[in-house]
């Protein structure tokens, strides 16, 4: 039970950090008085990831079964999204250190989530 709640807290923190990052990007665009189309899409993606993961994190914290399934799907999608972003950054010849860290962190979360949330002993805690 503690691990499920801890995972929920980590997922909420992950979502809040995305929301904060998106907020910073919005403020940056407002202050510079220009926002390229790509920047708008990146802000939208960050807001979507932040909102979805925060909601799922609350579900995990309250041990809801829908949140368990939704998180397993979401974390898998997130790993693929971050791998794609890493590839695009590599093609653009930009600094990939941050993206490698993102892929590593998301993959680590995915491994823990798939390893723990699919066990029968863990499933019984979900309502």
């Amino acid at each position: 039970m503690r691990l499920i709640r801890l995972l929920g807290a980590v997922v909420i923190f992950y979502g809040l950090s995305y929301l904060l990052h998106a907020l910073m990007q919005i403020l940056g665009s407002i202050l510079s008085q220009s926002a390229p189309m790509l920047h708008v899409h990146v802000i939208g993606l960050n807001l979507c990831i932040g909102t979805v993961t925060t909601v799922i994190g609350f579900g995990l914290l309250l041990s809801r079964n829908w949140a368990r399934i939704a998180w397993l799907v979401t974390v898998t999608v997130l790993v693929f999204v971050h791998c794609l972003i890493l590839f695009l950054w590599y093609v653009r010849e930009s600094d990939v250190t941050g993206q490698i860290l993102n892929v590593a962190l998301t993959s680590f979360l995915a491994v823990i989530s798939w390893g723990k949330l699919t066990q029968e002993s863990t499933k019984k805690h979900f309502a």
Partner: peptide, 17 residues
């Protein structure tokens, strides 16, 4: 209490920032 946990997480986010 879920509200206390949310408050702690927001505090953690600010300290990390």
């Amino acid at each position: 209490y879920i509200g206390t946990i949310l408050g702690t997480l927001l505090g953690l986010l600010i300290f990390a920032l």
